[in-house]
Simulated assay, not measured.
Amino acid sequence: MLMFDKMLKPAVRTVAFCVCLGAAAGCTAIYKNHGYVPSPHELAELKVGVDTRDSVIEAVGAPSSSGVLKDSGYYYVASRFRHYGAKEPEVVSRELVAISFDQRGVVRNIERYGLEHGIVVPLERRVTSSSVENKTFIRQLIGNIGTFNPNTVTN
């Protein structure tokens, strides 16, 4: 029995060490980068009043997003998130480069923003759900049989 106790102590120590090592590794921060922002060197190659939309894409790449309107600017966004344990991811840094154009499509202004210029705006994609999910065309057609009113067709 004494021999078994001597063998068990190193095994318990090894298991305890592995558990502590795993707990410490689980609490380290993990950083993730999302998006792309051109470097200051790449932006220095762009000339305000000379470059066009096409030459901007050739020089620094396609934008992360562009404005809603046809003649609006290009936006390059890069974010760095820190994941720490079971906590919600936190935005550590965010950079935005906004390139605006005039009516002719020529670069009018180049601006760079960071978190120090404002508040963190969460970037998210929201999709409107539909009641048509998981319903085939035949199921929708059969479901409308009782709701059809011929009087509404003749109007």
Rank of each mutant, 00 (worst) to 15 (best):
42 E>N: 05
146 G>V: 04
113 Y>K: 15
11 A>S: 11
151 N>R: 00
8 L>I: 05
18 C>S: 15
57 I>M: 08
82 R>L: 03
133 E>P: 04
22 G>Q: 02
39 S>G: 06
152 T>S: 08
125 R>W: 04
99 I>E: 05
94 R>W: 05
141 L>F: 10
12 V>T: 06
70 K>T: 07
29 A>R: 04
53 R>L: 01
19 V>K: 12
35 G>Q: 01
148 F>L: 13
41 H>G: 05
4 F>W: 08
114 G>Y: 02
36 Y>Q: 03
54 D>I: 05
54 D>A: 07
83 H>A: 02
131 S>E: 01
69 L>Q: 07
56 V>A: 10
110 I>Q: 10
107 V>K: 11
120 V>F: 06
45 E>Y: 10
81 F>T: 00
140 Q>N: 00
37 V>H: 03
105 G>C: 13
51 D>W: 08
41 H>W: 04
26 G>Y: 07
107 V>H: 09
135 K>P: 01
19 V>N: 06
18 C>W: 15
63 P>E: 01
100 S>G: 12
83 H>Y: 10
110 I>R: 14
60 V>K: 10
50 V>R: 09
11 A>R: 07
153 V>I: 06
129 S>V: 06
51 D>S: 13
110 I>D: 05
138 I>D: 02
124 E>Y: 08
131 S>V: 08
11 A>F: 11
91 V>Y: 04
36 Y>R: 13
78 A>N: 00
61 G>F: 06
76 Y>S: 09
29 A>K: 09
14 T>K: 04
5 D>F: 14
69 L>Y: 05
102 D>L: 12
109 N>V: 09
113 Y>H: 13
5 D>I: 12
4 F>D: 13
30 I>Y: 00
143 G>Q: 05
127 V>I: 08
115 L>Q: 07
69 L>A: 11
60 V>G: 07
152 T>M: 04
20 C>L: 15
44 A>I: 05
147 T>D: 09
50 V>T: 15
126 R>G: 00
13 R>H: 13
10 P>D: 09
106 V>I: 15
45 E>W: 05
116 E>H: 13
99 I>L: 10
84 Y>G: 03
39 S>M: 06
103 Q>F: 15
113 Y>M: 12
113 Y>A: 07
121 V>K: 05
35 G>P: 02
68 V>Y: 14
80 R>W: 00
41 H>V: 10
44 A>R: 14
82 R>D: 04
129 S>P: 04
15 V>Q: 01
140 Q>S: 03
119 I>Q: 07
25 A>L: 14
56 V>P: 06
144 N>V: 10
16 A>Y: 01
61 G>C: 02
